[in-house]
Amino acid sequence: MTPDHPIQRGQRYNRIIMVVFAVGVLAFFVGMAVDQTLAGLVVYAVAGLTGVAALLYLRFVSSAQLADERDRRLHERTSGTVVGIFAYVGLPVVIGLYLLDGFTSYTISSTIWGAIYAYAALFLTWGAVYTVYRYRS
């Protein structure tokens, strides 16, 4: 496989973009650690937005191929496993919080409510996307 093959180029670009993301996350935490939060945040934002823009370009414009069928199947399996974990672990936790809130002196904080809304949004989105795919298949 030549270095210019679309898949090999895609793998190379993908690795570079992951490094850019990692640098951004690292800068964010280093910034906080050395009391330069704003500088860290700026590097994080620039790295993150650059990475997203590069991924969008590679996916929709470039001839480089970011993933082959095995990569896509790995992504599908990973997504399915993560959603499964959130469903089977998260739902009992949410129900438990409701019960605690209703029957004990425990009160769900605004932060936890935010997490519950995000959790609900995740599954509503999953359901909407699944419905679209189901009707198209």
Partner: peptide, 14 residues
Amino acid sequence: QADLAAEVDVSRQT
């Protein structure tokens, strides 16, 4: 493996 991968448009890892 890399040559065959290029022929069928998948990665060597596949």
